[in-house]
Amino acid sequence: MSGMEQKNKPLLEVRDLAVAYGKVEALQGANLTLRQGELVTVIGPNGAGKTTLLSALMGLLPARGEVTLDGQPLSADVDVEARVGRGMILVPEKRELFAEMSVEDNLRLGAFSRRAEGRAARDDTLAEVYDLFPRLKERRGQEAGTLSGGERQMLAMGRALMAKPRVLMLDEPSLGLAPLIIREIFRIVAELKKTGVSILLVEQNARAALKVADYGYVLETGHVALEGPSADLAADERVAATYLGGKKG
């Protein structure tokens, strides 16, 4: 942790968050803190409740427990759109792009929550996103549905950035991508962190995630099994054995 005061301010706090699908408890009493400008990762195996956690934070799923943003509680009646308005943006695992629209239209819609700011401000952000993802600029007129897997992930991330998020939640950004593209995606995640946005990164690719993150949580069968600074987690024997493929990590 750097000594910067702003960096230590908790931005998103999650207390005893629980989600049930019928009788199945997908998430049981999860606690998590994301501080200003921090990159926090949640790692864990398939079905541990990682996507459920993000969906609940976003208001897509009904959940019990307490979530606060800037100290303000996000109660159940704060719906998805209102959470987006407060600066919470989720890049879902399925990307959820607008397939029959151009890359540029997808990006412009990313700034829908900022429509009151005027076009000039949104155009500036578009230019920044194009700087970060030159590939998207090349393909700006192409339909999103025709992009490759890596490009789709870039578009989903670019679209999220158009909203100028305060909390950026990334759900398995490396899922289904080739190793070379994964490296590129994580390089961009690291770069995003430098811009000051607070990031909650959910990943199965624990090695890459812990490398870029400040702090990590290990989620197992719906509860937080382990947490700590990511360097400590990466050095932890159990984590290394289970998630990093043995001693090599």
């Binding site: 976003m58 897509l60 987006v84 990307r95 792009l97 029959e100 829908f112 929550s113």
Partner: peptide
């Protein structure tokens, strides 16, 4: 228009649109 595109976006992908704050 952004509003018109938002309507088309909702028609194409409801979840995607909601996640962009399109009610």
């Amino acid at each position: 228009t952004l509003t018109g595109k938002a309507l088309r976006a909702t028609a194409m992908n409801r979840t995607g649109a909601r996640l962009m704050g399109i009610s």
